[in-house]
Amino acid sequence: MTSFGRRSLILSAAAVLVAAAGCSSTDASASITVPSPPAEEAALCRALDGELPDSVDGHDRDDPEPSSELTAGWGDAAIVLRCGVARPVGMSDPQGQGVEVDGVNWLLEERDDGPRFTTTYRETYVEVTLGGRYMHDIGPLTDLAGPVKKTVPATL
């Protein structure tokens, strides 16, 4: 093979590698920390996972990595659910904001990159983070409240 032929082959291989790298996902939000609740709470989370919808607010289910029955996602990490999380510090704040959606109470924590909601008065905490486009929209919670209500008993 001539020097020109080798150079063309190397350049072609480099172009393929660059193109492949451009197609790979580098979205850090698609990777999350999996909670590690006690066994009883993990069982509730597994039951919740079995009831979660295939789509939320028009987004198809697209679970984050690492794969777990304690986590779920929809719309390329636009909506992420984690079950069995620790009690949020914000629940001790007397000025904390809450919302009720279809019989499920949620603590609202406003963040720069989108709101975070955590269930209250349930046998385990279920956290839902929403992307920035949901700054003033709790719509996705309407698709998640039913499964939470069905599988995670209230403590009231």
Score class of each variant (00 low, 15 high):
Met1Arg: 03
Ser3Thr: 10
Phe4Glu: 10
Arg7Ile: 11
Ser8Met: 11
Ser8Glu: 01
Leu9Asn: 00
Ile10Arg: 09
Ala13Ile: 11
Ala13Leu: 15
Ala13Gly: 12
Ala13Ser: 07
Ala15Cys: 05
Ala15Lys: 03
Val16Thr: 05
Leu17Gln: 02
Ala19Thr: 09
Ala19Asn: 02
Ala21His: 09
Ser25Glu: 11
Ala28Met: 05
Ala30Asp: 11
Ala30Ile: 00
Ile32His: 03
Ile32Met: 06
Val34Leu: 10
Ser36Ala: 15
Pro37Arg: 11
Pro37Gly: 10
Pro38His: 08
Ala39Ser: 14
Leu44Gly: 10
Leu44Ser: 09
Cys45Gly: 10
Ala47Cys: 04
Leu48Pro: 07
Leu48Asp: 10
Leu48Arg: 11
Asp49Gln: 14
Asp49Phe: 12
Gly50Glu: 15
Gly50Trp: 09
Leu52Phe: 12
Pro53Tyr: 07
Pro53His: 08
Pro53Glu: 08
Val56Glu: 07
Asp57Val: 03
Asp57Pro: 05
Gly58Phe: 11
Asp63Tyr: 07
Pro64Gly: 09
Glu65Ser: 15
Glu65Phe: 12
Leu70Met: 07
Thr71Asp: 04
Ala72Leu: 07
Trp74Ile: 04
Trp74Asp: 04
Gly75Tyr: 03
Ile79Asp: 05
Ile79Ala: 06
Ile79Leu: 07
Leu81Ile: 06
Cys83Lys: 05
Gly84Thr: 03
Ala86Phe: 04
Arg87Ser: 12
Pro88Arg: 08
Pro88Gly: 09
Ser92Arg: 11
Ser92Asn: 13
Ser92Leu: 14
Asp93Met: 08
Asp93His: 07
Asp93Phe: 05
Pro94Glu: 11
Gln95Asp: 14
Gln95Cys: 00
Gly96Tyr: 02
Gln97Pro: 00
Gln97Arg: 14
Glu100Asp: 15
Val101Ile: 15
Val101Cys: 08
Asp102Ala: 15
Val104Lys: 08
Asn105Lys: 10
Trp106His: 06
Leu107Trp: 09
Leu107His: 05
Leu108Ser: 11
Leu108Pro: 01
Leu108Val: 15
Glu109His: 01
Glu109Gly: 10
Glu110Ser: 14
Glu110Ile: 07
Gly114Glu: 09
Pro115Ser: 10
Arg122Glu: 07
Glu123Pro: 02
Val126Phe: 02
Val126Trp: 02
Glu127Tyr: 01
Gly131Val: 02
Gly131Thr: 06
Gly131Phe: 01
Gly132Glu: 13
Arg133Asp: 14
Arg133His: 06
Arg133Trp: 01
Tyr134Asn: 09
Tyr134Thr: 06
Met135Glu: 13
Met135Trp: 04
His136Phe: 13
His136Arg: 11
Asp137Leu: 03
Asp137Ile: 03
Asp137Arg: 06
Ile138Val: 12
Ile138Phe: 05
Ile138Ala: 13
Leu141Trp: 01
Leu141Cys: 04
Asp143Asn: 12
Leu144Thr: 05
Leu144Tyr: 03
Leu144Gly: 06
Gly146Tyr: 01
Pro147Asp: 02
Lys150Leu: 07
Val152Gln: 02
Val152Cys: 02
Pro153Ser: 05
Thr155Arg: 10
Leu156Gly: 14
